[in-house]
Design a protein around this nucleic acid. Structure first.
Lengths: 201, 201
DNA sequence: GGGTAATCTAGAACACGTTCCAATGATGCA
DNA sequence: TGCATCATTGGAACGTGTTCTAGATTACCC
């Protein structure tokens, strides 16, 4: 929407050399590793830099803030999940049930590394406008995840698109409540199932 | 749920003296004022303390962190909105429409002080487990807001309770999306209306 | 290969949330 | 009234995200 004013990165980012690409991967890997034990607070920029064999200034050149770094980590993880899901698509027949199944599967994935999940989601919700392009990308990935789970042959109707948005809101907010210990996994499942009712017409 | 282990405040908090109550109000007022211009970042603990005529250590005795302070501010504002709404209840006849109307009204209230809204919502979503009791309270206030808008004479059915949860998720997440500039008010309204369809049976 | 611009490094410096401490003031009990 | 406990104050100190600088290294072009 306001890419022209708010988005300094994507417009013609110069392609990275091989060494640079490697550095970037190394940084993301270190971040995920530190997050996996310790969560958000354990991802300390000095330590990320040192463990990645990179100077602090360089780290900040690649990721302009800790939040940017962790949101990029989330993009990474989401893409991983996506390729997993394409290999093992959900089995239910009803679209709503498939979406629930898919999202709960993703949930279990996050559950396996709860600290990593905490770090990424805290970053995502704490992000201010300077990260909106990257956050938007995460949102887009999530929407794709949901619509692929529906596995329809038609393009989505207007109502279905609206429903997908609400499901995404529910997914995201339920995740936050679970991470802060205010809802159980069972409750999250119920909330997702409720939201998925909107897919039936 | 886990109040016994996670909630150090409410169990028998000693009643505050008048001077203490006044200090607390003063602090909350300063916080809201600083947040109103400047948002989250502008609420600096040293400045809150100084402007409230209170030592930094005292501020931290009343509110153990910046996030606690801003979540308390949100509780405050929500209660304000609640009393406003009780004076001017929504006019529509359909429960779903009344809920949308109420929430959009609240939204417009937040829109009038967008920086304050940003500060409170950032705090809310950034809160970790140490604030879960307070965040839970905010969630409860929101749920009350929604159910009062429905204005039913029966107690809520199981499905309605589930729907209220999804509406609350949607409200919360849509708020975040709007604050980060990734959705328009019109889009927020559509999302709320979509979620409110769940109230029809 | 030489020159130049971009990138990277090491580390100091700064900002703000948070903690700690010694001294002072308020409160309530015998 | 005197004493004991707790709250408040002012300010120093610490940790971590972020910025800045000067010099080394790398990448690219002729």
């Amino acid at each position: 929407m306001s890419d022209l004013t708010t988005n300094p990165r994507p417009p013609a980012a110069p392609p990275l050399t091989e060494r640079q690409e490697a550095r970037r991967r190394r940084i993301l890997h270190t971040a995920a590793q530190l997050a996996s034990r310790g969560g958000f607070d354990a991802v300390q920029m000095r330590e990320v830099a040192e463990s990645s064999g990179v100077a602090l200034g360089t780290l900040y050149r690649y990721f302009p803030s800790k939040v940017h770094l962790l949101v990029a980590t989330m993009q990474d993880q989401l893409q991983l999940m996506q390729s997993q899901l394409r290999k093992h698509p959900p089995s239910a027949t009803d679209p709503g049930a498939r979406v629930t199944e898919t999202l709960m599967g993703t949930f279990r994935g996050l559950q396996r590394e709860p600290q990593l999940a905490e770090a990424m989601v805290r970053a995502l919700t704490f992000a201010d406008r300077s990260v909106s392009a990257e956050v938007d990308q995460v949102s887009r990935l999530t929407a794709v995840l949901i619509t692929e789970a529906m596995a329809l042959d038609h393009p989505l109707s207007r109502d279905q698109l609206a429903a997908v948005r609400v499901i995404e809101h529910t997914w995201h907010s339920a995740l936050v409540t679970w991470l802060s210990g205010r809802a159980s996994i069972a409750q999250v499942r119920i909330d997702l199932e409720t939201a998925c009712k909107l897919l039936a017409e």
